[in-house]
Design a protein around this nucleic acid. Sequence first.
DNA 1: AAATTTGCATGTTTTAAAGCATAATTGTAA
DNA 2: TTACAATTATGCTTTAAAACATGCAAATTT
Lengths: 233, 233
Amino acid sequence: MSIKSTLEKVISEDLAEIWSLLKSEEKHQITDNFEIHNFKKNQIIYAEKDNPVHLWCLLKGKVKLYKDGIGGRQQILRLYRPIQYFGYRAYFAREPYVSSAAAFEASTVGSLPMDVVKNMIDNNRDLAWFFIHELSKNLGGSDTKIVTLTQKHIRGRLAEALILLIDNYGFEDDGKTLKIYMAREDVANLSNMTTSNAIRTLSAFAQERIITVDGRRIKIVDEAKLRQISKFG
Amino acid sequence: MSIKSTLEKVISEDLAEIWSLLKSEEKHQITDNFEIHNFKKNQIIYAEKDNPVHLWCLLKGKVKLYKDGIGGRQQILRLYRPIQYFGYRAYFAREPYVSSAAAFEASTVGSLPMDVVKNMIDNNRDLAWFFIHELSKNLGGSDTKIVTLTQKHIRGRLAEALILLIDNYGFEDDGKTLKIYMAREDVANLSNMTTSNAIRTLSAFAQERIITVDGRRIKIVDEAKLRQISKFG
DNA sequence: AAATTTGCATGTTTTAAAGCATAATTGTAA
DNA sequence: TTACAATTATGCTTTAAAACATGCAAATTT
C-alpha cells in the first residue's frame, strides 16, 4: 500500500468529525499537505513564542498544552486525546504561541499548514463554525479554570484535576483505573500545587478511601466524594 | 429625528469595525433588531447560568465580565470599553453563561439577537473571521491569566492589573491619571487578592513613588517600574 | 551486582496572604 | 445637619501552602 493511500485511509478513518465537513477538493488539499510525525514521550511539539505555522491533529497518544511560569513552575492548560486538533489559536490571533505542546507519551501527530486551513475556512462555512465552537468551549473552560485554580484549596483542586482526567481519558476496562499514567509532578502542574503537595494530597485521598494509588496507577473508588470535594473548594 | 434614524446613525458611526464588514441587507437586519439599553452603575447585564440570547455591544461606559467564586469572592475576567462586543461566547459554545456581565459605571449597551448574528456569520466570511479572531485573542489572554494569577505574588499581580487598566482605558488628558475610577474591592477582584491587600499594596506602591493615590484617582508615576514589578512576579 | 539517578513519601520550618478587628474617612439618605 | 452606611486604612493573628530536608524504593546505567 502506498504512503499516500495509507495517509488517506488514516485521515478518512480518524478525522471523522472534520472530515465529514469537507468537500472533495478540500480533501485533496489535505492529503497533499498533511504530514505525519512521531513524537517521543516528553518531546516538545511546539514551544511558547514560536510562530504558529501548522494545525496539529493528535492521531495517537496523549498531548499536554502547558505554560512555563515562575521558577520553573509549569501549568498544564489542556489535555488532548485522539482525534483532537490544537495549535491553531495563536495563528488565528495573529500572534506567537503563548503556550507549549508536548507529547505526554509516545504520540502520532498530523500537521497541516495553517494557510491551507485558512483557505478551507474561507470556503467552508461548517469548518468556520467548527473552530468558532472549539474556541468558545475552550475559552469558557479557561475562564472557569482561572477561578477554580485561584480560589479552591488544594484538595478541591486535586479532586477537580482527577475529574478532568476521568472526563478526558476515561477508565480502563475495570471501569475504575484512570487511563492515564502521569508523574506526580504532572499531577501537580495540572492542579497548581507543588509536587510534594500533590503526593501528600493523593495519599490523603487514598487514606480516606476516595482513591487507591499504586505507583502511577490511580483507581477512582468514590467518584461522588471526589466531585463533592471538588465542589466545596 | 426619528428613533430609527438615530439608531442607524449611532450604529453606523460607532460600530465601525464590524459595520464595515457588512453587506447592505445585513445592515437592515441589524437596524431592525438592534435595541438600545441603559444600565446603571453596578447593574447586571446578564448573569452566570443564564441562557445566551443576545450579542451585546458596549456603546458608552464601562463593563466588567466577572465570575463569582468561593465565599463571595469575585474574579474579574475581562473589561470592555466602547465599541466592543461581548456575551456571544456561551451561545457559540452552546451552553449557559459561565460568567456575568455588569456595568462598571452608567453605560449604554446595544443588543442584537444571536440568531441574527448566526445568520449573518453564515453569509459573511469576514464576520466569521472577526469572531474567530476575537475568541482566539481572548483565549490566549485567559490562558496567560491562569498562570499569572496563580503564580505571581501580590505585588506582581497588582502591577499587572494596573497595566491592564492603562491598556484598556488609558489616561486622562494629563497622560498620568487612569481613566477609570474603581473601588478597591474591584481592584482586588481584578488581581485575585483581598480588599485589604489591594489597599495595602496600593499604599506600598504610593510610598515607593510608583503611583499616587487620591481616593479612586490613581496616577501612574513610574510605569517602567510597574512593568518591572509585573514581570518579576 | 554495584552504583547512580529518578521518583515517591513524609516530617519540619518558613512565609505569603487571608482573616479578623478596629478606626478613620467619605459618601449618601433621611 | 445629622445619622447611617459604605469605603478606605492599618495593625495583629492565623493559616494554608511553599520551601526545605531527609529517607527510601525502584529503575537505569555501568
